[in-house]
Design a protein around this nucleic acid. Structure first.
Lengths: 221, 221
DNA sequence: TCAAAAGTGTTTCGGATACACCCATGA
DNA sequence: TCATGGGTGTATCCGAAACACTTTTGA
């Protein structure tokens, strides 16, 4: 599971630390009577307290060799068995998350995507695949509802896109495209406190946003 | 597993028939020391005799409820347990396939995608998801190497695309785009025996084709 | 000699990109 | 008053889509 958040103009990912061990992506086990999707929702909720989050399955990893070095526990332990990981990524509102370590781990916290430490097994590759999928999904799905606070400015939204894509975008063209999606409401307020001209605040039209999420966007973004 | 073939201008899918039961998508079990990808390759090979096939993982299905009606065997049988299916689709050359039923089934044959019968459990949805993924992959990956004979004409290639996409395309624009990909070699021969002007034969430049498969295509197709 | 299929080139249009000017604010 | 960031409008370009004419072939 790859939980992405956005804070201080940086894309963040939530990592767990094994007791005495390295960092890893959070995970969980699918219960016997539980659907895989439900399991993802449940473990995300246990870890962050959040509900109704955008969760996207992106790939299933099932090479036994990927767990090489798995000698942390004795060979007799159930945990030494072979696992298959079904990768999901989540987009969550950073400020609403209260990271909770699970039973197996001692620490749970956000890391800057650019600065994640060495991860266990193939978790780095899993994270990269999640990022890659997120970037592709950006082509035909709106992003932001789950990553930004309710009210936000156009430059903030642009920064989010630039951070995910890893490239800078033209300010004016970006605004045109975003408004063209017709999923944003411009509020009458402006964001005060900045050092310069006060930018407008926007918020997503939840209904239109959800519709766009499901149907996909006709033209990119 | 969803094996697609192309024959007589129709997209085909390979189905198995349970003993005394309904039709279903072919599948297999992942061995303990085997990677999930290898398992897909192995079962495809056992079923069709083919190697080096384009195989693409598209989604993992894990809702226990999807197997409702699973009362074909006694509740004590291992097969009555809960399964998770990792979906792969394959593109294979129709004429090279010699369909082999597996141990659990009595029949294995091609069906026209438009005319598949009722399938077991959620296999119809799985097939639809495979088709949907194939259509999307068409946007940035070349298709045809594994679905057409070595030598083929431009109208045949176009027909393949039209069949997968379910819409008709402009003959002239299609040719321009295809040649623009620079993965086709035009042969000096023409296809004879037709009732009209003899079309050129083409074949894929295997190296360039593979490169395009891995890197993706810059502009659509 | 005619209908049907195939080969090739030109025009047109729309969305994306590049770009310029004015406004508001705090230092 | 000026540097910085924000709001808006216009020109341009390129690739996709639309489209027309000629050639070949068997009937």
């Amino acid at each position: 599971m790859c939980d992405f958040g956005f804070h201080e103009n940086q894309l963040k990912v939530l990592l767990l630390k094994w007791k005495e061990g390295p960092w890893c992506l959070p995970g969980g086990f699918v219960k016997h009577e539980e659907s895989v999707d439900d399991s993802a929702v449940r473990t995300l909720n246990e870890r962050t307290g959040l509900e109704n989050i955008y969760l996207q399955q992106f790939h299933t990893f099932g090479d036994p060799a990927r767990e090489k070095g798995k000698k942390i526990v004795s060979a007799k332990s159930w945990i030494s068995k072979r696992f298959i990981s079904i990768g999901y990524y989540a987009l969550v509102e950073f400020s609403k998350v209260n990271p909770q370590p699970d039973i197996l781990s001692t620490e749970c916290r956000w890391w800057d995507v650019e600065k994640v430490p060495a991860l266990i097994y193939d978790h780095k590759q899993i994270m990269n695949k999640a990022l890659e999928t997120l970037r592709l999904d950006l082509n035909d799905h709106p992003v932001g509802y789950n990553l930004l606070p309710q009210k936000f400015t156009m430059p903030e939204l642009q920064c989010l896109y630039e951070t995910i894509l890893g490239e800078s975008l033209d300010r004016r063209n970006f605004q045109k495209r975003m408004l063209g999606l017709e999923i944003l409401d411009r509020l009458k307020e402006r964001k005060l406190g900045g050092a310069h001209k006060a930018p407008f605040l926007y918020r997503f039209d939840k209904r239109k946003y959800q519709k766009a999420l499901q149907q996909g966007l006709k033209s990119g973004w």
